[in-house]
Amino acid sequence: MALLEVNDLKTYFQTDDGIVKAVDGVSFSVEKGKTLGIVGESGSGKSVTCLTIMGLNSKKNTITSGEALFNGENLLTAGSRRLREIRGNDIAMIFQDPMTSLNPVHSIGAQLVEAVQLHRDVSKKVARARAVELLKAVGIPRAERRVDDYPHQFSGGMRQRVMIAMALVNDPDLLIADEPTTALDVTTQAQIMNLIKRLQDDFGSAIIVITHDLGVVAEAADDVLVMYAAEVAEQAPVEKLFNRPFHPYTWGLLGSLPRLDIEVERLVQIPGQPPSLLRPPSGCRFHPRCPYVMDKCKQVDPPLVAISDDSDHLQACHLDEETKDREAKKLLESTMAQAS
């Protein structure tokens, strides 16, 4: 059984302008010790998906349906007390901006101790010892002394380490990292991604990495979910997704990405803008921007189905597989040829 299995998850927000379908029928699963990468542009629903699983959307004006089975237990119907037991204990989360995600008026020690004591009936002293242990594990120098410092006394990279320590302090089975490196500098990014990988080996947690950075996904994820306009466009193990991408949106993403290791004359550009989730396009939501658009695409929303010769590789597109294989190969050859 998968650690987390999400089936047909929908999150709708009622706003003054109408219903925003922020997540519209998303399914995936995460296995123990594995890493799932969710990629997509802003507004694609990748963060809302995870906040919904955690029960962190504000209850008011939010309609949720589907199921999110964590160890067989549906989190979407669990009571708020049960959810609180799970949050921070079985499932932990780290966020994009380490500068604002820690409370400025409490010392980091106090915040870590809080995380421990919310789930363990231990003395402050024991909790503090655990906090120091974790701060050491994430590479905070002089952790015994710095545990009493306040967030503003740490740099961005150090704060993200503190966030990670806080997330791991109760040894969670699943860690959700929402754009964990986006707000950080390149060299700090590398430090944090290395740290997350190392800790995954040590703690054996499963990880969901939400990111817009295809590089991070390519290197860190075992499986990848590509989201577009609140739906899953493509889902596959990482090598398959990059070596045989099967959705025009994925091609667009890969082609529009300037790369360090490749000299590209001109970037492929996906024309237009991501659609409004208030009034999404009919049929396939990508059709107004898709160069391969057919009449069928405008009317029928393609289901997410496995491609004929690979049951692991799911995609939602009407285009015939022959064309897709040809286009995928073309894209890949062009990058391989340019690779230095």
Binding site: Q189, L214, G215, A218, E219, E239, L254, R259, D261, A339
Partner: peptide, 9 residues
């Protein structure tokens, strides 16, 4: 330090 969008490389 830059991650590369190619799993192998």
């Amino acid at each position: 330090a830059v991650p590369i969008a190619d799993p192998e490389r």
